[in-house]
Design a protein around this nucleic acid. Structure first.
Length: 744
DNA sequence: CCCCCGTCAGCTGGT
DNA sequence: CTGACGGGGG
């Protein structure tokens, strides 16, 4: 064993045990910042050094980005002194067939599922050319179905049915069952919609995201020879972010793990933040029970965050009840306490954040090491405006990704339809631009005719006169396809079909201002898509399918990541990343926790984990903030501070907002009493309203500061006090919900 | 069939 | 305030 390699010598004892563990299944419980990726990479390298062929190692990650990062690090470890770009080249080659043979396959569940289905999908009646429908495509399909079935779209929007269908697939139950367990009243209708949806996808030769997991499970269960073939290939399995697998992903993992020489699952239940899409930490928590002879190793040293940050994060997450108590030791002592600021509205907040970002940059922090996190995408706007004002470059992660842009989707729909002319959703999209005089009515007639005659939809479509040019060009294009690279094929297709010309003409068109400018941008996006295609090397249909898959499954921004830009993203997007400086904005009830989560203790805990994830991304500094009024749908609404702020011990947080009364040292700024001070904190008021002279005239609210009590309403559990605060004005406060100090 | 315009509802989160 | 949808005229 070549343990002299720096990749092994720099490991701590726990990481080393995880890297060297052989034999039974291994659960690696890796807290935030504990060097998880380093351990996984070292484990892969260790396997390779032991002589395991790269192709027999399968590493599943949560995002394509995480896979890319890991691939790069593995490549670098294997060729440490090589051309620095060599690692990049290897990293970029995925998922090309040309990928370097010495780096294992690393990718998402969805990408892996797609590969299995391309290879063996014919066994369950799936065309090799199947297209992948994303959420938008799915909603388009459902919209048509709901119309056909006369379901009121207002009461039952397509998204709801999409959610239900996906849930059914994840849990491996019928749509009716899913509807029942979700408490729906329209169970029969749900079943009909589910059936129609399946038919529509089958007719279009399409699969949705969840199919990419569920169908492989069905396939491997039903075809022992395929299962054996896959198992003979996948000898070593690693699954990252195991706390966030959904039911179908857990089943797929089991199927692979049972036949493997080694299986290593890595996760941290405190970072499980995808419960809303069916993820559950249950497979992780029951790991030992389900895998006799398995081993559990904890990585409990945090190498990332300063102790001052970690103690706040630790105090926060300790409030969650459904978790295993664990000890996390900071490797980096000291540091600044996270700061907490209150601003008038989100514009003020954004301006102060932008100003602070500017200060950090002036002080020498790299812009790429600064991130702003928020709960919902809509919050990015104010921050963007403020950063633009100060001319600070920024990049958004995740929001509306490159591949979701209208023009890119248009171009991709051409590609999808040319490869699969039965794909109704793509056809409908591409017919929007340029106009070809074929609309919904004509399509519906054609569809009906195809059903009547029992021919594929495309058979009837080809008889539509206005589509004839498209079909004849498609025949030409298909004949040329085997000789063309993905980029050539895409370009030939878009220009031959008249799309590029129409787009250019429309971009040149003067006068319309907004229209013209928009098209200009569209053209740029399509050119960028063509550039992305350049990176794909395969020839003919295979290369193109690979490109298409990448485009459909990649949520990431295409093109170069700006190397000098501040990062803006949602808390969900922040998972797995780290930054020197982190800003966490909009810490208000309704946003964090989100209003749609507040009714369920379970979901509130998930929101708390989201906050925890945000805090633990920071290495050096954290800035927390909230606003007093928030603009929603055009009007301002008063806010309530996030209930999670009351979980943070006052002594650990630095209050920076001068406009509010400064809290005395050690006093309970956020509800907790510091050492050395005796502060009476009441959950119940210590007075009766019948005796007004006994009631306190002043209260100290954890966030609003000191205020004058004006009146008291209700009794017992529902008792509220109405008090006036210096900055916030009049506030009604539910006594049992807030730890307040009552002063006289 | 297409385009324009008025009305109305809407903002979790992501592969 | 923004985007989606439906109705009516071209």
């Amino acid at each position: 064993m070549m343990l002299s390699d720096p990749i092994f010598t720099t490991l701590d004892p726990d990481q080393r045990r995880a890297v060297l563990h052989d034999g039974g299944p291994l659960l690696l419980v890796a807290g935030a910042g504990s060097g998880k990726t380093r351990a996984i990479v070292a484990r892969i390298v260790r396997l390779l050094r032991d002589g395991v062929p790269a192709r027999s190692i399968l590493g599943i990650t949560f995002t394509n980005r995480a896979a890319g990062e890991m691939r790069e690090r593995v490549a670098k470890a294997l060729v440490p002194d090589g051309d620095p770009s060599a690692g990049d080249a290897v990293a970029r080659s995925f998922p090309g067939t040309s990928r370097a043979a010495h780096v294992p396959w690393l990718g998402t569940f969805h990408a892996f599922g797609a590969i299995l289905l391309r290879r063996h999908g014919d066994r369950i009646g799936l065309s090799r050319r199947f297209v992948i429908y994303d959420t938008r495509d799915q909603h388009d399909v459902l919209k048509r179905i709901l119309k056909d079935l006369n379901v009121d779209e207002k009461k039952f929007p397509p998204a709801k049915f999409g959610w239900l269908i996906e849930r059914a697939k994840r849990d491996g139950v019928s749509v009716e069952q899913a509807a029942l367990s979700a408490g729906w009243r329209v169970v029969t209708t749900a079943g009909q919609v589910g059936k129609a949806y399946d038919d529509a996808l089958a007719e279009a030769g399409a699969v949705d995201f969840t199919d990419l997991i569920r169908l492989p499970v069905t396939l491997l269960r039903g075809a022992p020879d395929v299962l054996a073939a896959v198992r003979s290939e996948v000898r070593h399995l690693l699954v990252d972010e195991f706390q966030d697998v959904d039911g179908a992903q857990a089943e797929l993992t089991e199927l692979l793990a049972q036949g493997a020489d080694s299986f290593c699952a890595v996760g941290d239940e405190d970072q499980s933040i995808y419960g809303w899409r069916g993820a559950s930490a249950a497979p992780m928590l029951s790991f030992e029970g389900r895998h006799p002879g398995s081993k559990v190793i904890h990585l409990s040293t945090n190498y990332r965050s300063r102790a001052a940050i970690l103690s706040v994060a630790g105090a926060l997450i300790a409030k969650n009840r459904s978790r295993r108590e664990k000890k996390i030791t900071p490797a980096r002592e000291g540091g600044e306490r996270p700061s907490m600021s209150v601003y008038a509205d989100q514009e003020a907040e954004a301006q102060e954040v932008a100003a602070a970002v500017a200060r950090e940059i002036r002080a020498g922090v790299a812009p790429t090491e600064i991130a702003v996190f928020y709960r919902v995408n809509a919050q990015s706007r104010a921050v963007e405006d403020a950063l633009r004002m100060l001319r600070i470059p920024y990049v958004l992660r995740g929001a509306l990704s490159f591949y979701e842009r209208a023009a890119v989707r248009d171009a991709v729909s051409y590609l999808k339809w040319f490869l699969h002319p039965d794909d109704a959703v793509s056809l409908k999209r591409l017919l929007k631009f340029p106009r070809r005089g074929v609309g919904e009515v004509t399509l519906e007639k054609s569809r009906a005719a195809a059903r009547r005659e029992g021919i594929p939809p495309s058979g009837a479509l080809s008889r539509i006169p206005n589509l004839a040019p498209l079909f004849s060009f498609r025949a030409l294009w298909l004949a040329e396809l085997p000789q063309m690279s993905p980029a050539e094929a895409l370009h030939a297709l878009l220009s031959g079909a008249g799309y590029l010309d129409a787009l250019e003409a429309s971009a040149r068109e003067p006068g319309e201002g907004r229209e013209g400018a928009g098209r200009e941008e569209d053209l740029e996006h399509v050119r960028e898509l063509l550039r992305v295609a350049e990176a794909f090397t395969g020839e003919g249909e295979d290369g193109l399918l690979e490109f298409l898959e990448k485009v459909t499954l990649a949520a990431e921004e295409a093109g170069v990541e700006e190397s000098k830009a501040v990062r803006l993203m949602t808390l969900h997007n922040a998972k797995g990343l780290e930054f020197d400086v982190v800003f966490l904005v909009g810490l208000e009830d309704g946003l964090l926790p989100h209003s749609r989560s507040v009714d369920s203790p379970h979901e509130i805990e998930e929101e708390r984990r989201l906050f925890y994830v945000g805090l633990t991304r920071a290495r050096e500094r954290v800035f927390l903030s909230l606003v007093r009024r928030r603009n929603l749908f055009g009007s301002y609404r008063d806010t309530v501070p996030s209930r999670f702020l009351y979980d943070l011990p006052a002594s650990l947080v630095r209050r920076t907002d001068g406009a509010l009364p400064e809290s005395p040292p050690g006093r309970g700024l956020f509800g907790g009493a510091g050492p050395g001070h005796r502060v009476t904190v009441h959950r119940e008021p210590r007075y009766e309203e019948e005796n007004p002279s006994a009631r306190p005239r002043k209260v100290r609210h954890p966030v609003f500061g000191e205020g004058q009590v004006e009146s008291v309403q209700g009794e017992g559990k529902d008792q509220k006090i109405i008090a006036r605060f210096p900055v916030y004005g009049l506030k009604k406060i539910l006594v049992r919900a807030v730890e307040m100090e009552f002063l006289d």
